[in-house]
Design a protein around this nucleic acid. Structure first.
Length: 195
DNA sequence: TTCAGGATGTACT
DNA sequence: GTACATCCTGAAC
């Protein structure tokens, strides 16, 4: 397993979004580790994307991280109760990021279940829904604003191209329209969502 | 199995 | 005051 390098995040955001599929998001906590395969992403590019919080050079306390150097986590609070996690891409000064929308938990399932539901005994319905959405995966991995701006080349939260004992899986990549952003007008039609 | 409605903090008008 | 990169619950098919 190798951590993805800073260079990986430096390039084009849409390309990075596609390449993040199948990679592993790893969360290290005291004594516990949770890892999940990335199965769904979306690209957000501040300069030209009305859906992005930082569209047209907007800077707010919330979006500040987006302008920072690549390879950092941008975690924000939405709808009053949920978090979403992005990976900051492109060089410092470019407000671009890849939203992680879906994960397949491959390590530390019980720990993730405890964080998300408060129990390790889950119904099939709960197992299916443990991390198949941006808000859900943040609950399962305990991603909060505490980790906003966290360096993905550090030890607490990072992304690798493989894990010991876990087979890499590949499957056809689909590019689709993004969801939940109808207000963004023409930007909602960009094929920037990858499954 | 799908659907409508509510919860709720932050940022922007 | 309004809208938001969401999810869960409960009700109807």
């Amino acid at each position: 397993m190798n951590k993805l390098s800073r260079d990986f995040y430096m390039g084009d955001t849409v390309t990075t979004a596609r390449e993040l599929l199948g990679k592993y998001l790893v969360r290290q906590m005291s004594g516990n580790m949770i890892a999940g395969r990335i199965i769904e992403t979306e690209a957000y590019i501040g300069a030209i994307d009305k859906a992005c919080h930082a569209y047209n050079g907007k800077v707010t306390p919330r979006t500040k991280t987006l302008y920072g150097p690549p390879g950092h986590a941008y975690i924000y609070f939405i709808y009053g109760m949920y978090h979403c996690m992005n990976v900051v891409t492109e060089p410092e000064g470019q407000a671009s990021a890849v939203l992680i929308r879906g994960l397949d938990i491959v390590k530390g399932f019980d720990t993730a279940a405890g964080l998300r539901y408060g129990t390790v005994k889950l119904s099939p319905y709960q197992i299916r829904n443990i991390s198949n959405g941006p808000g859900k995966l943040c609950m399962a991995l305990d991603l909060t604003r505490e980790l906003n701006g966290c360096d993905l080349l550090g030890d607490e939260l990072y992304i690798t191209d493989g894990l010991p004992g876990v087979d890499n899986v590949t499957w056809p990549v689909k590019a689709t329209k993004r969801v939940g952003i109808d207000y963004a007008e023409e930007a909602k039609d960009f094929l920037w969502r990858f499954i």
